[in-house]
Computed example of a mutant assay.
Amino acid sequence: MTRQEIKLVISDIDGTILNDQHQLSPELKEQVARLQERKIPLVLASARSPLGMEPLARELGLKQEPLAAYNGALIIKGDAENYQVLAEHPLDRKELQKMLTLLQEEFPDLAINLYSGLDWISSQLNRWVQLEAEITGESPQIKEDLLDGLDQLGAIHKMLLIDEPEVIEKVYSYLEEQDFKELACYLSKANYLEITARQVSKELALREIASYYQLPLEAVMAIGDNYNDLPMIRLAGLGLAMGNSPQAVKEAAQASTLSNNQNGVALALAKYITKKK
């Protein structure tokens, strides 16, 4: 059976288009320019916020393409400062309030971060939060008691918990034992625990973006490196795993490419779409 021609590419950011120094390669920029010559959109899908994604999109020359932020909890188009919401799936308020209460009681030293649109509110400015700020280029608002004034915030799209891997493992196990019907937890790194609305996933983001472009799923190529990328990798017409992916992610993908430090995405675009290295 002949594979359908790829007309849309959806890619993760960290560990995928970025190398371990959090940089984009000249080879990738060249391949993205070749995609644009063929009028094939490249859409970035990430756990990052819009503000953490837009500089990379701008550096790649992606001006009209949507951004799927917070793993698809918020999909926007346009400048981050003046964007149009294409789709959003915020956290349930009652369950969020319950989870925050439990976390502040059981893990008082945990760095808790809330993301609402462009706003990043953190419970403390420790080394983990400072490192996240350096990686994303954003600055959090510090508020020790996140429950205070919670009702005044707009839609909250994601909560991020950061600490040592062994602490996050305990937090993850604790939250999984609680009765949260509307919220879902997943590890994006060994020391990063993300909480979103249960229906949020990169699979849903892929469906919504493909619908926006009025393209069948078979015409989409999805690229990622970690477990939270698995839903879109499985769903896409061509799902690719990075060479730095865990073995389980590689096994679920149709194919794999080299690592993020070896221009894996640029090579995949050349192999499957532009045919030029």
Rank of each mutant, 00 (worst) to 15 (best):
R127E: 04
G137Y: 05
E144K: 13
L160W: 06
E134K: 13
L114E: 11
E138V: 15
Q152G: 03
Q141Y: 11
L125E: 10
V129E: 15
H157F: 09
G117V: 00
D145N: 12
H157I: 09
V129D: 05
S123I: 06
L147P: 01
K158Q: 15
S116K: 00
L153F: 04
Q130N: 11
L118D: 02
S116H: 01
I142L: 09
M159A: 14
I156A: 10
L114Y: 10
S139E: 14
S123A: 10
G137D: 07
G154R: 05
G149L: 09
L146I: 09
K143Q: 15
Q152H: 15
E144W: 02
G149T: 11
S139K: 15
K158T: 01
P140H: 08
L150S: 09
S139A: 13
Q130T: 11
M159W: 06
G137N: 09
I121R: 07
Q141W: 03
E144A: 15
L118T: 13
E138C: 09
I142N: 02
E132P: 08
M159G: 01
Q124R: 14
L153N: 03
W120I: 02
A155H: 13
A133M: 12
M159R: 07
T136G: 08
P140W: 07
D145K: 00
S122P: 12
G149H: 11
H157S: 07
L131C: 04
L150Y: 07
G137S: 08
H157P: 02
I156S: 03
L150R: 01
Q152F: 13
L150V: 09
I142R: 03
T136A: 06
G137A: 06
K143Y: 04
Q152N: 12
L125N: 10
I121S: 00
R127M: 04
G149C: 04
E144C: 05
W120T: 02
W120F: 06
H157K: 02
A155Y: 08
T136M: 05
W128S: 04
L146E: 00
I156P: 00
I121G: 01
A133S: 15
H157G: 10
I162G: 00
V129I: 11
L153R: 11
I135K: 05
Q130P: 00
V129Q: 14
I156K: 02
K143A: 12
Y115R: 01
G137T: 07
E132W: 05
L131S: 12
Q152C: 04
